[in-house]
Structures are given as structure tokens and as C-alpha cells.
């Protein structure tokens, strides 16, 4: 492995400075569960690793009037051990509690999951259906983008040189909103999704007033299945309506065949998982 130096900036500005200085020879270190594996595997060579965990905003979890703001480097366990977060963001908790095993969850962050931009990442679809915004800092200050614009290709995110993710902003919803995430893996734990779906719904007077469906491991990036989501707006959450939207999601999925699964298998899985996650989200609203 190519040797690198370690930087632990204490402010957002200091981090931007180091990242700018080293350009593509620097990478952020959050939980390290992707980046350390990748440098060791010589996927790339680094001169600098920038530990962002000592910047206070990167590991804080703050409630404002209309958002929950999660520091980009907050480990998964902090989220699923917080009953308030569990109550308000069930889909995200589904994701956070199935990334790796307990050891991985002590370190792995949703920010790292997102920036790593794997098509099969378990955190990203849940962020999409919760309408998350990415707060990005860079040489020109702070900008925000919707999470569905963050992944631009396998392992590629939308950030420019010198930029990094500070936090993830999640809008607070009312009690008529809920969400769910489910993946298919051949084992019970510790595996990479063959296909996965996150769904969220809001129910008003028995009808669906908002809906988002997102698909993982069936394209070069996680996919916001907007057309399938729209089909349910104004409709009742009947079995048939859910089935129709699930078929649409299956159409939108554009997987490849590889050692984990074939195109046909993955598309079928998307239909089943869309049905399940939509039904689960509806059920979670009702209880």
C-alpha cells in the first residue's frame, strides 16, 4: 500500500484547505469501512487521508424546527440507538441496522455510504425516499443538493475537488408519513444486496398523498423511481394499486447480470420488494 499522511482538521474550513491542496490524492476518512479497504486493495493511491470525525458538525445529530441534521460521519449505531430517530425515520433505521455487522455499525456512516456511491449501497435509497438534502462544503462555501443527485456513476459522486459532505438534512414529516427498506441477500447478514428497495408514503383520508420509491443494485447508481412513485399519488393503498406501481418499478430497474444475480432475477426481486416495502410503509403509518 502507498503510504499516506493523516490529517485531522477541526473545522470545515481546515478540511476544505487540505482537500484542495491534495486534490485527488486525498480522501476523507469517516468510518473507514470502505476507504481503508479500498486503499489497501490498491484501488487508488493516496498521499493524504482526512479524518473528518473531529469536526463537530460531522458527528452531531441536531433537531431543528423542520429538519433532522445528521453529521455526515455519524456512525450507524448512534441513529438506531436513538428512539426519536427510530420513530421519525423508520426506513433509514432499517438501512442503518443492516449495514455490515455490529463492528461495522460502530464505525460506518450514512455519509460514507452515500459518498462511496456504490449502486448496491444500503443507505442511499432510504435517504432518497426521505427526501434528504446533502450539505456540501467547498472552496466556494456551502451548497445543498438533493440526495438523488449525489451519485453519478458506480463509485462516483457529484462533489468537485476540495468539496466534502458536512451533513445530511432530513425534512421532518407528520405522523401520516412512514417508510421502509428491504434488500434481498442469500444470507441472513453481512452480504451485498442483490436488489433492494426503499419506499415512503404519506396517507391522507385513506389516500396516498406522497410517495417515493428508490431502487438499489439495479443500475449504475441507486435509482429514484419517480414514475412508479407518482402512479400512487391520489390513490388508495390497495393491493392492486401497489401491484401496479411495483410493476412500474420493475420496468424502471435496469440491472446487469453478474455473480450475484441475473437481470431477470433482479427485476423480479424489485417487483416483490417494492410491494413489500410499500405495504410495510402503509402499515407503519396505520399503527
Amino acid at each position: 500500500m502507498h503510504p499516506f499522511n493523516y490529517y485531522d482538521p477541526r473545522t470545515v474550513e481546515e478540511a476544505v484547505e487540505v482537500l484542495k491542496k491534495f486534490g485527488d490524492r486525498a480522501k476523507c476518512l469517516a468510518g473507514g469501512t470502505d476507504v481503508l479497504v479500498q486503499t489497501r486493495g490498491e484501488r487508488y493511491e493516496l498521499d493524504a487521508i482526512v479524518d473528518v470525525k473531529k469536526i463537530p458538525e460531522l458527528t452531531s445529530v441536531d433537531w431543528t424546527n423542520d429538519h433532522l441534521i445528521i453529521g455526515a460521519a455519524t456512525p450507524c449505531y448512534v441513529l438506531y440507538e436513538d428512539p426519536k430517530v427510530c420513530e421519525a425515520f423508520p426506513g433509514i433505521i432499517d438501512s442503518a441496522s443492516l449495514i455490515g455487522g455490529i463492528q461495522i455499525q460502530s464505525r460506518a456512516s450514512l455519509g460514507g455510504n452515500l459518498c462511496n456511491a456504490s449502486p448496491s449501497a444500503d443507505g442511499i435509497c432510504s435517504l432518497i425516499v426521505h427526501e434528504a438534502e446533502c450539505v456540501i462544503a467547498g472552496p466556494n462555501g456551502i451548497r445543498e443538493i438533493p440526495v438523488e443527485e449525489m451519485c453519478v456513476g458506480p463509485g462516483k459522486n457529484a462533489m468537485d475537488e476540495g468539496e466534502f459532505l458536512v451533513s445530511i438534512k432530513l425534512p421532518l414529516k407528520n405522523s401520516f408519513f412512514s417508510s421502509s427498506y428491504e434488500r434481498f441477500i442469500p444470507r441472513n447478514e453481512m452480504d451485498i444486496a442483490v436488489a433492494a428497495v426503499a419506499s415512503s408514503v404519506s396517507l391522507e383520508n385513506g389516500k396516498i398523498s406522497s410517495c417515493r420509491i428508490a431502487l438499489a443494485a439495479v443500475g449504475p447508481t441507486p435509482i429514484f423511481a419517480e414514475e412508479a412513485s407518482k402512479m400512487l399519488i391520489g390513490k388508495e393503498p390497495t393491493e392492486e394499486n401497489i401491484k401496479n406501481a411495483s410493476n412500474k418499478a420493475k420496468e424502471i430497474a435496469s440491472p446487469i447480470s453478474d455473480m450475484r444475480g441475473t437481470v431477470e432475477h433482479r427485476k423480479d426481486l424489485i417487483e416483490v420488494l417494492t410491494r413489500r416495502t410499500l405495504s410495510k410503509a402503509v402499515e407503519r403509518v396505520s399503527v
Binding site: 473507514g32 481503508l36 455490529i102 463492528q103
Partner: peptide, 17 residues
């Protein structure tokens, strides 16, 4: 696996620093 500040982690995925 080791325990850091009360949480278990894989020490191969933590830097010594």
C-alpha cells in the same frame, strides 16, 4: 475485534493514529 470506548470495532479497519 477490539473494544474502543465501549464499542466493538474491527481493528483492521481503524488506523493506529
Amino acid at each position: 475485534t477490539i473494544n474502543i470506548d465501549g464499542r466493538i470495532v474491527d481493528s483492521c479497519l481503524v488506523l493506529g493514529v
